[in-house]
Design a protein around this nucleic acid. Sequence first.
DNA 1: ACAATAGTATTTATAATACAAATAAAAAAA
DNA 2: TTTTTTTATTTGTATTATAAATACTATTGT
Lengths: 240, 240
Amino acid sequence: MESSHRNLTQQVVHELGKSIFQGTYKVGDSLPSEAELCTRFNISRTATREAVKMLTAKGLIGSRPRQGIKVLDSKHWNLFDVDVLDWILIGKPDLYMLRSFQQLRLAIEAEAAFLAAQYAQPEDIKAIEDALVRMKDATNGEDDTHEADIDFHQSILSASQNPFFIQLKNFITTALKVNLRFTNRLKAVTLEEYQAHVDIFDNIKAKDSQAAFDGAMVTQRATLALINEQIQQFESKGDS
Amino acid sequence: MESSHRNLTQQVVHELGKSIFQGTYKVGDSLPSEAELCTRFNISRTATREAVKMLTAKGLIGSRPRQGIKVLDSKHWNLFDVDVLDWILIGKPDLYMLRSFQQLRLAIEAEAAFLAAQYAQPEDIKAIEDALVRMKDATNGEDDTHEADIDFHQSILSASQNPFFIQLKNFITTALKVNLRFTNRLKAVTLEEYQAHVDIFDNIKAKDSQAAFDGAMVTQRATLALINEQIQQFESKGDS
DNA sequence: ACAATAGTATTTATAATACAAATAAAAAAA
DNA sequence: TTTTTTTATTTGTATTATAAATACTATTGT
């Protein structure tokens, strides 16, 4: 039995949300009617309707009398919602989705580094440094590389002191997880990658915002280039 | 009577959402209990609960038995939700909020221009150009400057072909509106500003992504610098 | 045959009531 | 004082009933 710590309504929200991103219900499709959802999940109309309302609030579906419940066009989806990002991940994103993540990551993380260099407080610097230490330890197998990596990027966003960048922690975290799916290296980050992180940190600590920006940008563009190569490879294979 | 085209639940969502961003209920505060909300809005528990669930889905509030309904910490708020952005605007954002908007705008719009140069389809180019024409007309008072400006920025985001950038249209639109609040120029954009837009468009059309990026970045950094000046002025005035 | 109209059926929207579950606060016991 | 038990309050879920919206059907008139 999964996620029984959540209440009924939230479980249904999760199930339906997953279904949408797994393609069970596509854009424009009708979901089962309230009545049918009740019987299918064996719950009351109250719980069903509340679940529907929550998905409505996240921009995934819309409901009108007689017309039923329909999946809205994806332009309405709140892609930066924590739950939605979870469902994207569960829905097994493809290479194109990975690229979309990386394209926005690049934009956000470079400027976040810039702002961190300007506005980071001592405790922010410490948080970044801590994550960095754990990354180094991880290269020796002493810690989880991936978690430390996530913490590193998250603490830079925090250091920006900007609520919008901070809210994008969810997005960046999911982006890193998607990335991991494709690169699926069994072990630590390379020393080269680690050094790039250190360089960015040094520039943030030194309050050299432009250097921090440039450093992050170079790293991110490199990652994006790799993804584009993979896509090109994939597409030429498909053409033959 | 306002917003009577929406159904009851959504009206309550709007009222409560507004209240939170207007400071009626602050982070950590309890909202009135379900029972009290029912009497206050003169609606059934059904409608009340559905409204609460929608705000919960947007990350604004949380509810637990006996503890009641509380405003969550702002780090949980879905700041990129259309409704939330509306409420931010209604809540009369200050200079610091304006800066936060601008900081993220800068990151997004520069890279969006970069991607637009790479991936824009003919119809995207046309949409950008159309907006540009309407902006020029607006300098002669023939059209609404602000709307044309919004369309210009939105169509660049569309041209990126990236769902995440496209979802950020709401954010950019709100950012532009917040900006307008502070600069509150009665009339058109200056010719200088207009020319900057044209330059970016030309580079996108010429598929020179780096130039498009640089052009957008310069413009955005200039805007940010202006805001920072205003903040500095404001802060020095407050110190005296 | 076609168009406008009226009627019907289906689905969501709202209301009202009842009870269950969680939990904070108070009372009792150790 | 500390722990346990009880109690009261609030949200969570279920059920039933009715209203409102609207797609579909039948009817009517031309």
